[in-house]
Design a protein around this nucleic acid. Sequence first.
DNA 1: AATGAATGAGCTTTCATTCAT
DNA 2: TATGAATGAAAGCTCATTCAT
Lengths: 214, 214, 214, 214
Amino acid sequence: MPRVSRDYLDRRREEILAAALRCFAREGFHRTTMQDIVAESGLSPGALYRYFAAKEDLIAAIAARHHAAELALLRDAAERADVRLALRALVRAFLERLSDPGEQEWRRVTVQLWGEALRSPRVMRVVREGLDEPLAALAKLLRRVPGIDANATARLVASLFQGLVLQQAWDPALDVAAYARAAESLIDAVLGAAPARHSALVRQPRSRTSRQRR
Amino acid sequence: MPRVSRDYLDRRREEILAAALRCFAREGFHRTTMQDIVAESGLSPGALYRYFAAKEDLIAAIAARHHAAELALLRDAAERADVRLALRALVRAFLERLSDPGEQEWRRVTVQLWGEALRSPRVMRVVREGLDEPLAALAKLLRRVPGIDANATARLVASLFQGLVLQQAWDPALDVAAYARAAESLIDAVLGAAPARHSALVRQPRSRTSRQRR
Amino acid sequence: MPRVSRDYLDRRREEILAAALRCFAREGFHRTTMQDIVAESGLSPGALYRYFAAKEDLIAAIAARHHAAELALLRDAAERADVRLALRALVRAFLERLSDPGEQEWRRVTVQLWGEALRSPRVMRVVREGLDEPLAALAKLLRRVPGIDANATARLVASLFQGLVLQQAWDPALDVAAYARAAESLIDAVLGAAPARHSALVRQPRSRTSRQRR
Amino acid sequence: MPRVSRDYLDRRREEILAAALRCFAREGFHRTTMQDIVAESGLSPGALYRYFAAKEDLIAAIAARHHAAELALLRDAAERADVRLALRALVRAFLERLSDPGEQEWRRVTVQLWGEALRSPRVMRVVREGLDEPLAALAKLLRRVPGIDANATARLVASLFQGLVLQQAWDPALDVAAYARAAESLIDAVLGAAPARHSALVRQPRSRTSRQRR
DNA sequence: AATGAATGAGCTTTCATTCAT
DNA sequence: TATGAATGAAAGCTCATTCAT
């Protein structure tokens, strides 16, 4: 019989994940100590361990949360009837996310997750699910396009997003909008049609400030 | 006046890097201890530290070596007169590398490097050089294609390779050849021509066995 | 909100300092390992580091404690109206301390501190405070004596104590009482009066056994 | 049958000791590595070890050299017929040494030696000889003064010198000349005579520059 | 005699996790 | 439930010394 409401517990959980995310983005998984997260979250070590039994659980939970959001975004875009419009919506949605400074922390952590998956079967499971489901959704969409290998092409599309995440993590001043425009041209070319107008792409707030990460 | 030849020293250095690479691929940077590398290399800690003053130096040296090889591969392909042939040669060369089981360790380490760069300015420097030079070479090549943003498109191409490395690291059974074929179709589409025959792509030695690492 | 009382924490701290003192006296700063202190204190390394973040902190804390006690002793003696009586009280108090076998460890550590100060700005600060305050108190006292350089003479007096500490550390069988008597004669001579009776000087428990430490 | 002259060997030995002294003065015994001395002396480790079989041998050799010079200085002064003149000559000679910047390194090392003696029986032996012989010479001199404890007073005099060395090591800007004057007044008082003129005391080159030793 | 690469025990410090209160 | 002091294995790295050349 819980002494506090389920809701309260969930909120605490979210706070911890948010604190952990900030730490991981700032210092990396391995340089972040549980004490750092304890300090960032304002909890005590004992309290923290009631919610997450190990450091790796934090990593996995963050990854799961992350991928759920991405899959939602993808499904949302993929519902469109027209393949081209769907892909374009996807590019635009993704670009919007990348431009959100609040999401930058996710980005940095994502890249670390990729490497971490190679070490931890636990993280690998989450990360692969995070890729497989989007791949399936993309492939389903692309199967409507004749003359292409839908599965392989889905992977190409995934690569375009992964590469962008990576390159932007390394260089936050990267011109995301130009990348997106080029990606749309590419999509148009593949879909074998005249390029559509790039109506109203979100403008990339290119922060030209020196990006240093000590 | 050194007691041993320059050559001997260089060989030792290479042996150490090879030992470190094996360890990093197996256990990850952070789970690999210097003792692990010492054991793997058959040296003593003191000897190891004569060659590399810190663990991070090993990481950076491995990255540098890695990128030099990749750049060479890229330059080699890019010297072809025809853009399409150059890109195709590049895809093929890359695919061959990926198929080489001896290179699998590099792949796994590469993905870790990506995350590590976010934490270590030292590694970031090496990693960015490892991207910037290929990007410049690709952009130079793509500038010959009218109507595209050469720089952004170069990044797209880089993404295709990065995504492939990542996806293959996660799943060594990935059908690299299918990915390559789809990439070539994509290139053809962008270059605005009828797809060429995929004459003799290297066959991917698909190991279908599930690989688990504790 | 600490789980244990402030008092408990303070006691632990003192225990650690006492353990460290024993180790330092026995083996010297540099030959004493943190593991030695851990073993001597009965704590774990982690616990030790909760109280003192570095080995040097232990040294500095011991020095500070030491000097506070000495300053108190000096101030106590210096409050006497008569200069001669004050100096004599000081000599006597000091002699008593030196005779206390419980203080022998402090002595041995003191001498090491002197050298350590030359290397560590941290220790130097503590050590200089430990000299400057007594010097000021002595000079203040000596300013009442006409015809002498109070500051320089204060340093002479300090030297008499320092030399005694040093010589006794090297030879615990040293005849401290004889040294003290000679010092009192010297003080009498300087103060330009007939030597007073050496009423009741504490007897030095001369351990004549040769002490060897490996 | 030596391949090189005895003289050559001796010169090498001296060079090594000089290099070691510089290192010890700069970094302290324990922070100085044999590699530091190797670098400072321009030799190789192997060569260094032909002359001194262990680090401690260097320390002991430096101490022995040091004390021989001091004893000579003392004997030189003590030869005088008049006790007062002898002591005054001693003070003056000592003061000159202290003022010599070339000797500052010895001073810093001396203080470390004092602590080191407590750890190393080897060093203790040298250090005690370095005190006992001067004490004997001083006591012999002071036995001519009636009504004093020659041995204890010899120790007082030694303390005056030890304290000066210590205090100057901590603060090179210390007014050595004032200290010497006060010491002479003290001697005069003890010898029961009117203070003599302080004719030509060596001037202390008071460097008021900030004395920092990192 | 000299060289300098190599040795390897041992150092200080860290940190994920536990558990008495 | 929450607290935070405690644990202790293990990490990265150093350095006095040796010895094959």
